[in-house]
Design a protein around this nucleic acid. Structure first.
Lengths: 110, 110
DNA sequence: TACTAACTACTAAATACTTAGTAGTATATG
DNA sequence: CATATACTACTAAGTATTTAGTAGTTAGTA
């Protein structure tokens, strides 16, 4: 899915090439993946010169947003603040990032 | 898992009763679940009067922390800040909570 | 002591997910 | 025109996950 987002529009071959750059995978495997993504409503396909061209069916923001919500619901019973605490303590956040987030939160407050 | 954490120490029956309060489930289903959790190293069991008593093998913080890290890696390529942005925009966070998080971040900064 | 209740261990069925093979079709090229 | 190439559709094998059944053991009780 990330790949389709990155390319914005991609054929099976495009995704296949992109995936194979990092790990071995069969062409037909990618085909099946795309079909699954289509069934799940994440991508839409159109026939272009006898090849399916897939493009995201929903804005990335929306999908990722839903995933975050789902995660928060499952792990934190819907308490976003708890997740934020975890993140705030995450050592992988630099001071810079922390400050940036502070700024954003401040802006949202106003 | 949440139930074991809540009860701190629980038998299969304990979890069974707790689960059944919200949805129908078979006793043996819970048994299998506990076995899976044990195999995955989330709980440890000890025999107490011919019944297994399970208790968390790792502190909750640690497990949830790992889940968050995993989620951030998968969805955001490790960029915690991106997830924070999503959360900050989450309508389900109240002003109060947002402010609380700000405070915490500030404290971490000092 | 025989019966019932509360367990566990082992097994199994259903579903989903991941990976990939085979067959078939259409296009382009030698 | 035959043949290779680039696709898709359909099918399948392997693995994980979820749910639950069956058999067997132990302890208490009528």
């Amino acid at each position: 899915m990330k790949i389709v987002w990155r390319l914005d529009t991609a054929t099976v071959r495009d995704v296949y090439e992109a995936l194979r750059a990092t790990r071995p995978v069969a062409y037909t495997t990618v085909m099946t993946m795309m079909k699954v993504l289509e069934d799940k409503g994440y991508v839409q396909k159109t026939m272009v010169e006898r090849a399916h061209v897939y493009r995201p069916a929903k804005p990335r923001q929306q999908v990722v947003g839903a995933m975050v919500r789902d995660f928060v619901d499952r792990v934190f019973d819907g308490a976003s603040a708890s997740l934020l605490l975890h993140l705030a303590k995450d050592a992988r956040m630099t001071e810079r990032q922390r400050k940036a987030v502070q700024r954003i939160l401040k802006e949202m407050d106003e």
